[in-house]
Design a protein around this nucleic acid. Structure first.
Lengths: 225, 225
DNA sequence: TTCCATAGTATTGTTGACAATTATCAACAG
DNA sequence: CTGTTGATAATTGTCAACAATACTATGGAA
């Protein structure tokens, strides 16, 4: 197999572009373009695309190519529900952390950075930090299986936000992140459970499904030409 | 990209073989052998292996080939903990199912089939049913994201069982499955939570890490020859 | 002007060839 | 008998070539 490092690098690059919303849902990922941009062989591209497809980040249409996925309403609901389950469950473990205060400090700094990025209209940084907050929180549980899954759910959430975000509004609020951390720091189990659940429900509520249905790539690209 | 159906078929075949324990941890998956056995091209094999690697079912060693993965102790712990979280979380949703009794019937039948398979020493069927019970239970929640993840966790659990199972004992008990269903049918939230948690803890306890450490394939295979 | 057919172009799908690396085996020396 | 070395076989890694399919542009007809 091609060097795993190369496939993994490409996988990572595309995921990062999706999270940053540089790669929007529905965009076509041409093999030869990816080869040029990332200086790798078609074999590497195809392996990375196979992995991305398996993670539902990319959709491969036979004979037509690879497209950044466009999660439908059902998938959106499923993703947010799954997140409420995992992010809710992990809180008990976080509450039991030995030096909880100390471990929460990097996250508190992240929230400040989130706020700062938002205020200076640095959308890319803000999105990235907002996304990373959730991943880093789950990472505190020191369970690699959970962390990997959280990474995957957050990538998918980025796609969803890219599709259904209402312009001008912040989907994932750093105030709410801060609140979660406060309850965590206090060891307030009920409080943090409620705050996390409400945060994720609010995020889901901010999706506007009438705003945009996932578009058939053919219709979309025909309109563009 | 090669027809997704072919890649998916091969992916499925290998996963099924892993679940059935026909493919044991540490076994080498030679590309050309897979091509012959499954009548497909090397490209298809490589795409499927890339996906399997990403799911931690297969480990690709550069220049040495693909091996069925051998989860270490940490990964085992992580998998079981993740399962307790997701399978515990999903129970609330199952308790709220409209026609719960009706929906639980196929699962009750599965448990009887599990018992029957065990009693006639049909190990493959028993393993398959035992595994499927958990997946089907989560599937009742009608959340595709959760179901997919549950599938993945159960595949990984099969690897773990293949590595750390103490011979002669049943790792996943159909009596315990039956108990879970009883509590569910009664709508007993505390009971079912406790039963599921205990069941998964018991499964984990039945792993014997001193039994076998994941072996370096070279050491293992050199001894075999 | 619009619509349709055709040709040309772009891209994906597949396979084979060959280079690179590792594994295996045989022969020989001690 | 064991250990070492070299040759050969097996397998992975990579790329190019070509077939197949889809997309786009152009010209002609209505």
């Amino acid at each position: 197999m091609q060097s795993n490092g190369e496939v993994e690098r490409l996988y990572r690059e595309i995921i990062d572009a999706v999270i940053d919303q540089r790669l929007r849902p529905g965009v076509k990922l041409t093999e030869t373009v990816l080869c040029e941009v990332f200086s790798c062989s078609r074999s590497t591209v195809r392996s990375a695309l196979a992995q991305l497809e398996h993670d539902r980040i990319v959709e491969l249409l036979p004979n037509r190519g690879a497209y950044v996925a466009q999660p439908d309403i059902k998938e959106t609901r499923d993703v947010f529900e799954a997140r409420r389950m995992v992010e809710g469950s992990v809180l008990d473990k976080l509450l039991a952390l030995p030096n909880r205060d100390q471990q929460l400090e990097p996250l508190e700094q992240m929230v400040q950075q989130e706020r700062a990025a938002f205020e200076r209209h640095d959308r890319v940084s803000w999105i990235r930090l907002s996304n990373a907050f959730h991943v880093q929180l789950v990472r505190l549980a020191q369970n690699n299986v959970l962390t990997e899954w959280m990474n995957s759910l957050c990538s998918r959430t980025s796609l969803i936000i890219g599709l259904y975000d209402k312009p001008g509004h912040s989907v994932c609020s750093f105030d709410e992140h801060e609140q979660i951390l406060l309850y965590l720091a206090r060891g307030d189990r009920e409080g943090v459970q409620r705050a996390m659940r409400q945060h994720l429900l609010d995020c889901e509520q901010r999706m506007h499904f009438e705003n945009r249905n996932p578009q058939d790539p053919w219709t979309m690209f025909h309109r563009q030409s």
